[in-house]
């Protein structure tokens, strides 16, 4: 029995999914996690380090790792790559000046072997702000079409402020992961 099948077996029993949330600072990662968990998003300090949340989502239990995005701590992202089922890349769609940084960091991340099998959800966040780029525009600037053809990915516009789009995004992500991991159900 290979390691992979052992992991699959364990996960099948617990129906757990490990989700890694990353993205530049100020993109709204923590706000998204709190919002989807129904918590107050009124006072959120920039994340120094990381937060972990376990959220029941349909019949699955999502372990969401929300990792701080400040430049100084981006190099620590790699400490969290292991066994990631789903990758959520959060973009501040109103921060047009830093989209080049955003693209560079994302493509860097996608080169990572340990994340090769993870489904990728790109949240084009802050859609409620006037002047934010549309998800299709974000996809273009981030060059998502250029990704390796084997990657399962989806871009979803959302607003962590209003909650719009968050469930749509997570629905896709959870179903995509489930169809890979729990293929026999």
């Amino acid at each position: 029995m290979g390691l992979l099948s052992i992991i699959r077996k364990i996960k099948r029993k617990e129906k757990e999914m490990r989700i890694l949330m990353v993205g530049l600072d100020n993109s709204g990662k923590t706000t998204i996690v709190l919002k989807i968990n129904g918590e107050d998003t009124g006072v959120i300090s920039p994340t120094l380090g990381f937060n972990i949340k376990t959220i029941k989502y349909h019949k699955y239990s999502l372990n969401i790792w929300d990792i701080g995005g400040q430049k100084t701590i981006r190099s620590y992202w790699r400490n969290y790559f292991e066994q990631t089922d789903g990758l959520v890349w959060v973009v501040d769609s109103s921060d047009i000046r830093r989209l080049d940084d955003c693209r560079a960091e994302l493509h860097n991340l996608l080169k990572e072997e340990r994340l090769a099998g993870a489904s990728l959800l790109v949240f084009a966040n802050k859609q409620d702000i006037q002047g934010a780029l549309k998800p299709s525009e974000i996809a273009k600037v981030l060059n998502l079409e250029a990704m390796d053809g084997s990657r399962h990915w989806q871009i979803v516009g959302c607003s962590a402020h209003t909650g719009e789009g968050l469930l749509q995004g997570f629905d896709w992500l959870v179903q995509d992961i489930a169809s890979r991991i729990y293929v026999l159900e």
Binding site: S94, I96, R103, G131, L133, V141, N143, A146, G149
Partner: peptide
Amino acid sequence: TLPPPPDQPNPSVEAILPG
């Protein structure tokens, strides 16, 4: 099928600077 290189010139971000 090789994907296009990710560092091809991108649509100029400056051109779409908003409001």
